[in-house]
Structure formats: structure tokens, C-alpha cells
Write a protein that binds this DNA or RNA. Structure first.
Length: 469
DNA sequence: CTTGTCTGCCCC
DNA sequence: ATTCTGC
DNA sequence: GCAGAATGGGCAGACAAG
């Protein structure tokens, strides 16, 4: 063997996780994945991960982890937690498992909490950053799977139609595949980082690069990892939980890991309370990076202080509820003063005006639409009164024929903005509880091209709250 | 370049 | 967006 | 009754293929 190849060989063995069979210089032993002995690590993990299902009060993170403190969390750990959740349907148990899983990460490798949360929520970046995988659920993932596991595309496709779950196809292809080496174990950070790399790839040749990155992850998977990696790539974990459950679990996990402050004495159920806090904070500032960071450094009870509405980061817009008849409104609001506003048929827009004059416009789903409405961005600084330095507007952008309609002002906001017909107007509103008047108003709104009415409480304790989703 | 295929925290 | 489901 | 998950059609934009 030449010097160069000997060196290569050594390098290779270093990265191999406990070769299941001795591999000498002359023979390559082919080992079927289903027959080979599992590495100690995996065996150990598998024998213990059932503990995650224990009630959080009886759970000890030290007993389940079998990696060193500050060592990167294995992707296998997350996959096994997912596997445990797959057998459950109740959200309470699922939350317990997620909570225990996150606690284990906090107790061993807090640096990995953020990527773990991202993967558990099946997200890759804050919504407003607009970073998406950009390869759908079909062809390119199929291509990656077939290349990674040595199948023809048509074979994978056929299995897909048969099983209805590409993850299961990946699992099956992997377990029957003959492997030469055990791959180096995947870590949670590695997967999270690679998902970002895949998302960032764009332009000519990007699809192939995305596919190759997926392939590189797939070939490193073992056991149940192909299933969950594939589903992560498809943006569909199919485990019966999503972001809200992860946020709740994160809050609960933080309670158990509380080093920074004790729960305020008046709180009856700290676990529920912490879950609510994390969910609410996320509605105000939907950025895991900031929330997880604040959680680790100053604790869950300080979260409302450390994470606030931030200029430039879109909140979850408050959502309306649909109703079909005007009399149902009166029923619902019978003890309340309310107003009805035209529900303009346009696009929801959340406009941020920063102190330096910068404008950002986001859609209902936090898509960055700033470039889409250059005229809106321009007109804002003109209409804003000089005393106003920064603001957030939640509004509806519509196309408008300036030669026609005229519009009535809503008083409250009038102090801060000048209206300009056809450029910036307040919603036409009626404050009344007369059914005939409301009926008439509804009709009028439809006549000028609106979709109906929005009903809002006018009580002083009524608030604008971000949607809890 | 033109044409075709595939995508989307889509839902305009 | 609408429809379905489990709590 | 509610929140959360699952599902579907349509259209504009991105990228690949020729």
C-alpha cells in the first residue's frame, strides 16, 4: 500500500464509528445492516430512550443520555424520541416526551438546544427571513433517496405509491442495503446546518447541489433515522404535533431546568404557566434563536421581559373568525360595545417603520413583501406626522380606483397620520347594534368590492393580540 | 434565448 | 384557503 | 367548541432542458 493510501485509510477508520467487523488492509467485509451488531452507543441509547415517556416529574435526564457532556447530541436521540411519539396520539403524552427530550439536551449540551428545537418544530429559520428548502416533497428527494441507497428512481416511486410515505421507503431501502462501513453518526446540529445549506442554495445548478446535500445526510443515517430525516426534508413529520406543542414542551423543560429564578409565588401551575409564556412570547417575537438564548441565560420567568415586540420582526397577526349571519354577531357581542369595519378584499400587510426611516412590509405569513409595494413604502414617510418616529401598522393593501369612492376616517389613529384618498385610508366603520343598520352596512361593503365586515370589540380592556398559532 | 417542469411556512 | 379530528 | 393537523387547487416565479 502506498503511503498516500495508507494515510487515507487511517483517516477513514478514525471517522468510522466502532467498525462492527474488523477490517484489515486486504479484505473488505460486506455487512448487511440488518445482521451486523449495533454499536455500543446505539444499543445503549435504544435500551434507555423509553425513559423519555416517563412523567416529567419522575424523569432524570442523566439516566437517558449516553453521550458526554457538551458532546454534540446524536440525531439518533431525536429520531428515537420521534419514534416514541409516533406510537402516541394524546398531546399531553407527546408534550411530556418532547419536554424530557429537551431537558436531556439542556442537561448535556445546551448549545444544541436551538438546533434541536428547530428540528422538532421542523423549521429551518425564522419565517420572516424567507429561507425555504425549495424542493417540494417529490422528485428531488426521490432522486436523493434512490442515489443514496442504490435504487432506481422508478423503484422508489413505485414503493412510494405503494406505502404512501417516502420516509418508510427510505427506511426500507436503507435496512436492506448492504453497507461496507458504519457511517459516522449524524448529529442534530449537522442535520440542522445542512438543512440551511440546502435552503441557501439557489440559482443555476442549485437543484443538483440540494440533492447532493440531502444524499450526504441520507447515507449517514441508520435505524429509524432515514424515516425522520426524509420526513424533515419533506417538511411533514406526521407525528401529530407541531410548533405549539414544541413551544409548550420548551417552556416545561425550562421549569425543570430552572437555575435562574424561581416561579413567582402566586403561580399555581408553573408548568402550564411556563408553556403559556413561551407560546405568547413566540407570538410577539417569532424567533427561536432569541427565545432559546434568553431561556438559557435568564430563564423562563424573565422571558416576557427579555423578549418583546421588535421593530422589523413581524408578529403573528391577530386572526378573525368567520360568521354567517348578522344576528349571530349581536348574540356574541351582546354585552359589549363593538364596531364593524369593512373587510377589504386585499392582502394583509404588516408595515414596520424604523426610526432610521427604513420600511419593511410583511404578509400575513411573515413573507417579506417590502419590494412588492414600493409605492406604499414611499408614501408612508410623507403621511406620517413628524412627531412619530417609528410605528407598526397592521393593514390591508388594496388596489384602488382613485377617481371613485370616498372614505370615512377612524378617529383613534387620526392623530398620527394624514389620510390621502387612494394612498392611505382608514377602514370604513360603523358602530351600531341595530340589526337593520348592520345588514345595510354589510351590503354596502359588498357593493364597493369588499368581502364583508370585520367586527371588533371597543371595550377598553379589548386588546390587539398576536394569533396563538 | 424559449419552452417545460416544479415549487410554495401559497390561500393573492 | 377548507375540511377533519381529537380533546 | 376549539385548536391543531390534514388536505387541495391554482397561479406566478424559479430553475432546468433543449
Amino acid at each position: 500500500m502506498s503511503n498516500a493510501s495508507a494515510k487515507k485509510k487511517r483517516k477513514l477508520e478514525e471517522t468510522v464509528d466502532t467498525p462492527p467487523t474488523r477490517v484489515d488492509d486486504k479484505t473488505l467485509v460486506l455487512i448487511s445492516d440488518s445482521k451486523k451488531p449495533k454499536s455500543d452507543r446505539v444499543t445503549k441509547l435504544k435500551s434507555k430512550f423509553g425513559l423519555l415517556k416517563k412523567k416529567p416529574s419522575d424523569f432524570d435526564p442523566e439516566k437517558v443520555s449516553c453521550w458526554e457532556k457538551r458532546e454534540r447530541v446524536p440525531f439518533m436521540f431525536l429520531s428515537l424520541a420521534f419514534d416514541l411519539i409516533a406510537a402516541e396520539s394524546g398531546r399531553i403524552v407527546i408534550t411530556h416526551i418532547l419536554c424530557n427530550m429537551l431537558r436531556t439536551v439542556i442537561a448535556t449540551t445546551p448549545d444544541d438546544l436551538l438546533p434541536t428545537v428547530y428540528l422538532a418544530a421542523n423549521e429551518i429559520a425564522p419565517a420572516h427571513e424567507g429561507i425555504k428548502l425549495g424542493m417540494g416533497k417529490g422528485s428531488y428527494i426521490i432522486k436523493a433517496i434512490s442515489e443514496a441507497f442504490g435504487r432506481t428512481e422508478s423503484h422508489v416511486e413505485q414503493q412510494y405509491t405503494q406505502l404512501g410515505d417516502l420516509g418508510l421507503v427510505a427506511n426500507g431501502s436503507r435496512s436492506s442495503q448492504t453497507m461496507i462501513f458504519m457511517p459516522k453518526p449524524l448529529t442534530v446540529v449537522k442535520v440542522a446546518d445542512t438543512l440551511r445549506l440546502i435552503a441557501k442554495e439557489s440559482g443555476k445548478g442549485s437543484k443538483d447541489k440540494k440533492k447532493d446535500l440531502m444524499k450526504a445526510l441520507l447515507v449517514a443515517t441508520t435505524d429509524c433515522e432515514p424515516l425522520y430525516l426524509t420526513r424533515l426534508l419533506q417538511d411533514n413529520l406526521r407525528l401529530g404535533f407541531s410548533r405549539q406543542t414544541v413551544l409548550a414542551a420548551l417552556g416545561q423543560a425550562a421549569v425543570y431546568n430552572e437555575e435562574h429564578s424561581k416561579p413567582p409565588p402566586n403561580i399555581k401551575n408553573p408548568l402550564d404557566e411556563a408553556a403559556t409564556i413561551v407560546k405568547e412570547v413566540f407570538s410577539m417575537l417569532p424567533v427561536y434563536d432569541i427565545i432559546v438564548g434568553a431561556l438559557l441565560t435568564s430563564g423562563v420567568w424573565n422571558l416576557p421581559k427579555t423578549c418583546n415586540l421588535t421593530l422589523g420582526v413581524p408578529v403573528r397577526p391577530m386572526l378573525a373568525k368567520a360568521t354567517t349571519r348578522v344576528d349571530l354577531i349581536l348574540e356574541k357581542f351582546k354585552d359589549t360595545v363593538f364596531t364593524a369595519e369593512y373587510k377589504y378584499d386585499g392582502e394583509r400587510a404588516q408595515i414596520y417603520y424604523m426610526e432610521d426611516g427604513t420600511v419593511e412590509i410583511f404578509s400575513r405569513h411573515a413573507e417579506r413583501n417590502t419590494g412588492k409595494y414600493p409605492d406604499v413604502a414611499l408614501v408612508l414617510s410623507r403621511l406620517k406626522k413628524p412627531t412619530v418616529k417609528s410605528f407598526i401598522l397592521d393593514c390591508e393593501v388594496v388596489t384602488f380606483n382613485r377617481e371613485k369612492e370616498k372614505i370615512l376616517p377612524l378617529q383613534k389613529l387620526h392623530d398620527s397620520f394624514e389620510e390621502d384618498l387612494g394612498y392611505f385610508q382608514f377602514a370604513t366603520a360603523l358602530t351600531s347594534n341595530d340589526i337593520g343598520e348592520l345588514q345595510e352596512f354589510l351590503k354596502a361593503s359588498i357593493d364597493i368590492g369588499c368581502e364583508g365586515l370585520m367586527i371588533k370589540s371597543l371595550y377598553s380592556n379589548a386588546t390587539y393580540e398576536p394569533a396563538k398559532y
